[in-house]
Computed example of a mutant assay.
Amino acid sequence: MDTIPTPKYDRDKQVMAKMFSDYYKQMLDYLILQLQFNPTDPKVIREKDIMRQINFWLKELNTGMAKEIEKLIKKVFKDGQAYHLLSVKEAKTWEKAVSSASFNKLQRGKVEALIADTYEDILLATHHTSNSIKKVVRDTTAKVARINSLQNRGYKDMAKQLEKELTKQGLSKTIVKDGFVGITDRAGRKWDLATYSKMVVTTKTNQAFIEGVRHESEETGFDLAVISHHGAEDACSNWEGMVISLSGKTEGYITYKQARDTNEIFHPNCEHTVHSIRSLDMLHPDEIAEHKQKMKAIGDVDSRKYVRKKKK
């Protein structure tokens, strides 16, 4: 089957990446200016004033991200609808597909929910970042107090070590490593705000595209789709080329929801998408054979989900 290339959204993501980069630099420079220790000219660290400014910038970042997220999710969902119409040959050109795509109350609600979920994840990350920066500020204040105490007690070498941590270079490492933390996952790995937000946007963008495909498939009555190939080396490879039912209306096929529930495919940061087909007749015999082979490797555990059969 000759598949139509899926749209790319690199430019949209670059806009968001630059937004994060600009705010990161602004906050980093400000924090170093406020926290850097100068033994010949010590200054009072005013935590409330510092956090007021940091939270102001984080709020501005949230507002800018909200606008970009809303614009991107709406566009991607619409592209998914158009992509379905082209794939099943209900439209001959991209322009015709976009203009023919439906947009009813149900679809509008789905788009709004995707936008809200994406923005909520970003808000959670910026909230964690604010708390992480606040801790860095407090730790720095404690280190400055300890330096003064050590110097008064004659522990100059220990004081020098702390002073080293509060130089521009030392503070920069600390702020980036411990301050710009958007989330800490279950494995204890720290995701900085920009990296975590990029993952969220990538995941939700892909999800919005597939939801656009799924909702338009409901309108046209073509329920089958093929999972895309990307040469994956993880568990996703087990699903590439498999034909699934987008809504569950076609018996004998694993549904999109069941596949997603396995966490092997359509997981966070997953780039796999789907290509709609009218029927298996649209596929090359080799593609049908691949689908059947992949199906054999899947075992029905119960009525809720599928898992891979264990090798003997």
Rank of each mutant, 00 (worst) to 15 (best):
M1Q: 12
D2P: 09
T3I: 11
I4R: 02
Y9K: 05
D10F: 06
R11A: 12
Q14F: 13
K25Q: 12
K25M: 15
K25S: 11
L28T: 08
L28V: 14
L28M: 07
L31K: 00
L33P: 13
L33K: 15
Q36H: 15
N38L: 08
P39D: 05
V44A: 11
R46S: 15
E47G: 07
K48C: 09
L61Y: 01
G64R: 01
K75P: 05
K75W: 09
F77Y: 02
H84E: 15
L86S: 02
E95R: 04
K96W: 13
K96N: 13
V98L: 06
V98K: 02
S102Y: 12
Q107K: 04
Q107F: 08
R108V: 12
I115S: 00
D117E: 15
D117C: 11
E120K: 09
I122K: 00
I122D: 03
T129E: 05
N131A: 15
S132H: 01
V136W: 01
T140V: 06
R146L: 11
L150A: 08
Q151I: 11
Y155R: 05
Y155L: 11
K156S: 11
K156Q: 14
K160Q: 08
K164F: 14
L166K: 00
L171F: 05
S172I: 11
S172G: 11
K173D: 14
K173N: 12
T174M: 14
T174I: 08
F180M: 06
G182F: 00
R186L: 14
L193Q: 05
Y196G: 02
K198E: 09
M199K: 05
M199E: 04
V200Q: 04
V200F: 04
T202Y: 08
Q207G: 05
Q207H: 07
I210R: 00
H215Q: 14
A225G: 03
G231N: 03
D234H: 04
G241N: 01
S245A: 04
G248M: 01
K249F: 11
Y256R: 00
K257Q: 14
Q258Y: 04
A259F: 04
N263H: 09
F266G: 02
P268I: 03
N269H: 08
V274S: 01
I277K: 01
R278K: 08
L280R: 01
H291W: 04
H291L: 07
Q293R: 07
G299W: 09
D300Q: 12
D300L: 12
V301C: 07
D302N: 06
S303M: 13
Y306A: 13
